Simulated assay, not measured.
Amino acid sequence: MKTVLSTSTKINPITLIFDDFRQITKAGLAFSVVFSSIAGYLLGAETVSFQILLLLALGGYFMVGASNAFNQIIERDLDALMKRTKNRPIPSGRMSVNAVFLIAVVFTVLGIITLYVVNPKTAMFGAISIFLYTSVYTPLKTRTPLAVFVGAFPGAIPFMLGWVAATNDFGIEPGTLFMIQFFWQFPHFWAIGWVLDDDYKKAGFKMLPTGKRDKGTVVQIIMYTIWMILISVIPVFGITGELHLSVTAAVIIFMMGVGMLFFGINLYHKKDNKSARNLMLASVSYISLMQIVYVVDKFLS
């Protein structure tokens, strides 16, 4: 008997190429970065320009795509050692280093040009983000847990970048937005580091502050979460220039932060992967909802 193969099991080559491109540029991460940038823009803009919004979204995607493409070139041998990353386009052999390098360079150029059209300061911060991520954060990941501290700088730029795009100015307002997302990075990435610790150790990544899944790591998670909560409601006191927050919005954001803190305390008591994963999911929800509350509060106040 002849075996008839169903054509539905065949994978379209175009789909494979698209999926590899998505993995190289980390489209999901790019979406969150663009979301943060747009939120920052809406907070800083007196009049919303949809042209600037489009340029900011495109520029943000190009910058994130470039950073992650460079990152996957640098870490290609380490990616091959980890279960989570061994099937990425480069270690799996589906894409060459030269092809990914071309994508990274083109995205860098397009990103800087696009953001420069918005204004020079936006392009400058975008370029700084790529440099810190690829040239400082990535090499440090196998050397010291301080890599997370360094990586928090480019990770905190998007929220701030939107305000700079709207105003062409850097002051206390974008500085405050930067600090909120800066302190948020630590509980978020240490929760990820906790869940993926075994895989990270295969590649020699030092992502947890104490190097272990212990109480010392969770204490730092809790401390940074508290700082994040405090800074996120500072605008309610009227000391952050044109960045304002109503009492109602501040209470909502404070309670969301307390909710995230609860998951950190739960991890302290249980010290298991399930609790760390819950904290990670809570942190993702917090950063998006917090930005939405800020924007909605501006337009309703």
Rank of each mutant, 00 (worst) to 15 (best):
Q23M: 12
T25G: 04
L29I: 15
S32F: 15
V34L: 04
S37I: 07
E46I: 08
V48R: 02
L53I: 13
L54P: 10
L58N: 10
D77F: 12
A80V: 03
A80P: 09
L81C: 09
T85Q: 10
T85M: 08
I90Q: 04
S92C: 04
V97K: 12
V100L: 07
I113K: 05
T114M: 01
P120N: 11
T122E: 07
F125Y: 12
S129R: 05
L132G: 01
Y133N: 00
T138K: 00
P139F: 01
K141E: 00
T142M: 10
R143F: 10
T144A: 05
T144N: 10
T144M: 05
L146D: 11
A147K: 03
V148Y: 00
F149M: 12
F153S: 07
P158K: 11
A165W: 11
G171C: 09
P174F: 09
G175E: 03
T176F: 01
Q181M: 14
H188P: 06
A191F: 05
D198P: 01
K201R: 15
A203S: 05
P209E: 01
P209W: 01
D214N: 09
K215S: 12
M223S: 14
Y224A: 06
I229Q: 03
V236C: 07
G238P: 04
L243Y: 07
H244D: 13
V251C: 08
I253L: 05
I253F: 05
F254D: 02
G257Q: 01
G259I: 01
Y268T: 00
K270D: 11
N273M: 06
K274S: 13
A276H: 02
N278C: 08
L281E: 12
K298S: 06
